[in-house]
Structures are given as structure tokens and as C-alpha cells.
Amino acid sequence: MTWLSWPIRLLVFTGWFAKEIVVASAVVLRDNLTPGQASTPGIAHYATRCRTDAELTLLAALITLTPGTLALGTETTPAGARVLFVHGMYNVDADALRTELRDMEGRMLHAVRRRGGRS
């Protein structure tokens, strides 16, 4: 049953991500075209829920593709959790950026894993 919904979940995620790229691009372009700087840049430490390196690589690529956020590097904690360092431009603080990343990661994991599930 969950196997059958896998291609549908992938398609839904692709559509959502395309929308997200357009929205984020519009934010960057608007800041670009209006005078002054509206950005609050910073680097956040984000502990991912990815279980394999493939999932982590995909997540880093998707974060970088979204304009305004940028994956800088990774590390693995002694406990085995995979950690990403993310540079964000339009979030008031690190927790706001982490909330956004958690939403995107959950959608990605649910789409990519054949059995679904977000954790």
C-alpha cells in the first residue's frame, strides 16, 4: 500500500519544491531590487533526521537550490546524528530557520523513503 503511493508522493514533493523555489526566488529578487538590505544573515546548526548519506546529500542539495539558504558543511556527532550547517538570509533567528528546514526535511523524507515516514 505504501509502496504504491511512492511515485505519487515523489510527484507531490516535486511540485511543492518547484513552488518553493519560485517563492524563495521572488523574496531574494525583491530584496535585490528595492533599496537597502532587508536580510538578516546567519549560520545555523541543524541536526537532521537523515539515516543515510544519500538522504543527507539530497537534503543539502535541496537546501542550496532554494535561493536564500545555503548548506555550508556537515559533520557527524559521536552519537551518529548527521549535522548540517546552513546559511540563511531571511530568518529573524536560528530557530526560525530550523523550523523552516524541519518542514522541508519532513516533506523530503516522506517522499523519498519507499515506506514513507518523517523521522
Binding site: 544573515p41 546567519g42 549560520i43 545555523a44 555550508l72 558543511g73 559533520e75 533567528d93
Partner: peptide
């Protein structure tokens, strides 16, 4: 260097993101 960062959790991290 970062220009006026609002927050920076990488420089304070021990391993400097290898």
C-alpha cells in the same frame, strides 16, 4: 568574514565544519 551576522553557530562549533 560574515557581514554583521544575526546569529552564527558554526564559528562557535568545535570542528569548524570539515
Amino acid at each position: 568574514p560574515l557581514h554583521r551576522p544575526a546569529y552564527d553557530e558554526l564559528t562557535s562549533s568545535a570542528t569548524h565544519g570539515k
